[in-house]
Design a protein around this nucleic acid. Structure first.
Lengths: 253, 253
DNA sequence: CGGCCTTTTGATCGTTCTCAATGAACGTGG
DNA sequence: CCACGTTCATTGAGAACGATCAAAAGGCCG
């Protein structure tokens, strides 16, 4: 049940100067001037409920968002309802760039948990490019990183077996979550259902279930509390023949 | 047989002012200042033989290329040799942006036909962003477009049947080729083997052959002269439930 | 002519899908 | 507190799609 996007709340509980994400070592440091611009660029915060639709394919959104907290996913639908999840979004990720740059969203975004988003005004992107070329470069960097993740996903869906695919996906999400500090102590808990995994891997729900059971039997993951917990990420990576994400520091807009 | 990238030839048979691509209606018009910068940004031309490797996964290329003529494809390999073709490149496309922006190529690029590439110096990207924000924005635009194509491909490989996938791919390549004027008269001829199609769709070669035969029997395509000829692109799109590419004019760097 | 690459075909195998049903966990309203 | 609906996970059986194996045919080029 798609919920229409809320209008941004104007309350700003997280001023950019006190951004909880920025101190993470994975993000590059910003010049004070850049930070000041970002702070001005930011129009407010938007709270999104679990299950709500953040952006809809075909819409012309006037906004660009950065995820502050929570998880979501990008997906596309075929006209008969088949769904393909393209990628997941988590804290620090930019959403809606495609719509901002190319005019119309070609995919939808849904919240996997409740989320808090920073809201930016699409029109001011031009000013960003004009006055802060470093930030413009950063946006390209972010787009290139998204492309890299998609390449990896496409390799997986196209050429890995069901078991390898599942192992890859879980290791991939675990690595990303860890890099933004989403691991309570050591254990990574992914807030996704098996239906999400199926729609990401291009498999049926039933076969996905049987595949995950194999991962559980191999003591690579656990399934509890309605989500997936990673036990042995090294084992998952080895099974999937996956090298892991690059460790480069990245920009946070 | 991967051929190491040649060093750029300095001969410039195609000065930017006389670029054969720029007049095409699909590309947006550039300011004289922008054109002058691009012309200075361009370091030369590189001729690549059919079958040669243009960029290698893992390498740190100092160059960024725009395709002037010819076809190629981007791909990734698993350690046991399974290959996934990620996307195709044709005139007007930028290649190597990932390597330029993020430091290391995460995929390889191979020439499907002989190609002519415009060579740009990676280091000068910063100057581009600083002095020509409009061009910086364009590069982001190009990256977002690539992401959009990948989304579409991922949907296809993940959720379409073999027949739909093949129809989608051929229609997709045909549409792109047409938009850059690669249709000799009306007929579109794609210079790819069935092995390429198989590696793009995530299918085996044998099954790909049988699938293409069905398309031929339905009079949607022909196969001749070692390549694919499109007969009925509407029929292909309908079979794949594909809406077609957006018609927006795009930048050409 | 002989060798290579690509396409084609048939036969069999196995992975994954579909259908159908059940079970477990949770929240809600009576 | 319990009955009920809902969502998500699980299981079995049979069917279908696509993979693999093997072989041959066609085209191209030296």
């Amino acid at each position: 049940m798609p919920t229409p996007p809320e209008r941004p709340v104007s309350v700003r509980r997280y001023p950019c100067e006190k951004c909880p994400l920025r101190p993470l070592k994975i993000f590059r440091e910003f010049e004070p001037k850049e930070l000041a611009f970002i702070s001005r660029f930011k129009k407010g915060e938007l709270a999104v409920d679990k299950g709500a639709t953040v952006l809809v394919e075909g819409s012309h959104s006037a906004h660009l968002y950065t995820v502050l907290t929570g998880w979501g996913f990008r997906y596309k639908l075929l006209s008969d309802g088949r769904r393909q999840i393209l990628n997941y979004v988590m804290p620090g990720d930019l959403i809606g760039l495609q719509g901002s740059v190319m005019g119309e969203m070609q995919h939808s975004v849904e919240a996997l948990s409740s989320m808090m988003l920073c809201v930016f005004q699409r029109e001011e992107l031009n000013e960003l490019y004009s006055n802060h070329p470093g930030l413009g470069y950063d946006i390209t960097w972010i787009a290139a990183r998204e492309e890299q993740m998609l390449d990896e996903n496409l390799l997986s869906v196209g050429r890995r077996s069901a078991l390898e695919r599942a192992a890859y996906l879980i290791a991939f999400l675990g690595s990303r979550a860890k890099s933004v500090g989403l691991n309570g102590s050591q254990k990574l808990n992914l807030p996704i259902t098996q239906q999400h995994i199926a729609d990401t891997l291009g498999l049926s729900l039933v076969h996905t279930n049987k595949t995950i059971r194999k991962l559980i039997n191999r003591k690579l993951v656990l399934w509890r509390d309605g989500g997936c917990e990673i036990v042995d990420i090294e084992g998952l990576m080895q099974l999937a023949r996956w090298e892991g994400l690059g460790e480069a520091r990245r920009p946070l807009v």
